[in-house]
Amino acid sequence: MIKKQLEEVKEKALEALSHADILDSLEQVRVRFLGKKGEVTAILSQMGKLSPEERPVIGQKANEVRGLIEKKIAERKEELSKAAAEQKLKSEKLDITLPGKRSRIGKKHPVSVVLDEIKDAFVSMGYSIADGPEVEYDYYNFEALNIPKSHPARDTQDTFYFSPEMLLRTQTSSVQIRTMEKRKPPIKILAPGRVYRIDEIDATHSPVFHQIEGLVVDKGITMAHLKGALDSMAKKLFGENVTTRIRPDYFPFTEPSAEISVSCFMCGGEGCPFCKNEGWVEIGGAGMVNPKVLEGCGIDSSEYTGFAFGMGLERLVMRRYRITDIRMLFENDVRFLNNF
C-alpha cells in the first residue's frame, strides 16, 4: 500500500519536475514533495503504522524515492541554472564597437618627449644633467668661449641684450664655462636648455629654441672619444643601424671642430627627399675643447683635454615627427598636442 503510494509519488514528482522550467517552480516541487509537509514526508510519517518486518523494506524504498527525487531536482537545478546564466549573459550583450569611456590623460609636449629620451640616453652613459641661467653675462656666453667682442662669429648669433654686459644666452655652451668654473675634472655633463637669437618667426625660425650641450673633460680625452660618444648617442636616439659622420667645421671654442651628421634615418643613407638626397642629416656641432677655454676656467690644458658637442632640439623633434612648421611647437593647439 505504502509502496504503491511511494511509486505514485515518485511518478508525480518526476512529472512535476519535467514541467518545472524555472528555478522558482523547481523549488516549489521540492517543497511539495520533500518539504516538511511534503508528500514524501507525509508518506514516511505513516511508517509508524507498519509492521517491524515491513519497516526496513519500505524504509529503504522510501529513501530510494526521496534520493531519486533529490537527485533529479539537483540535476534539473543545474540545468536550469546553466540556462538562466546563459540567458543572462545573452541579455547582457553589448555593442562593443561603441567608443570607450576614457579618462583624460595629459600629453607630454613633443619637445619634452625627445628631450627626456636624450637625457635618459646620456644619463645611462654616466652623464649628469647641468643647468645655467638664460639671462646671462656676455662673459659666459661669448668672452669665455673665445668669442671676444669684435669676433665675427657674433654676427651669426644675433643676440638680445639687456645691457652691454647682460644678454639672453644664444647657446647652452655658457653652461660649459659655469660648470668648469665650479667643478674640477673629471667632468661629464649634459646641459639642455632654452636659447634665444634674433630671428623673425617663420616656419623654420623661432627666436626661442632649445639646445643640448655635452661636455667631457678628463685626462687623455681624444677625438676618438668624441666620435665614440657621438656614435653611442646616435644609436640610442635613432637606432642601432644609424652611423655618425663628422666633418670639419669651425667654432671658436673648439679645436679641432666638427659638424655632426647621422645617416638618414628615413632612407638609411640611400638618399631620399627627407635628407635632400644626401643620405646624411646634420644634427649639430662638436669638437675638442679649445685649450684657451680650459685655461680660462682654471683647468690645466697640458693635463686635461675634453670634448664638447651641441645640438638643436627642435630640429630633432621636427624630424622625428615630420613637423614642418616650428611655430606649431609654441602654439600649443590641443589638437596638435594630442598627437604625442
Partner: peptide
C-alpha cells in the same frame, strides 16, 4: 679617426 669609448672613473652621473 676611430671611435672609442672611454674608461672614465667619472662617478656621480644620473639625475
Amino acid at each position: 679617426i676611430p671611435s672609442a669609448s672611454f674608461k672614465s672613473d667619472i662617478s656621480g652621473g644620473g639625475y
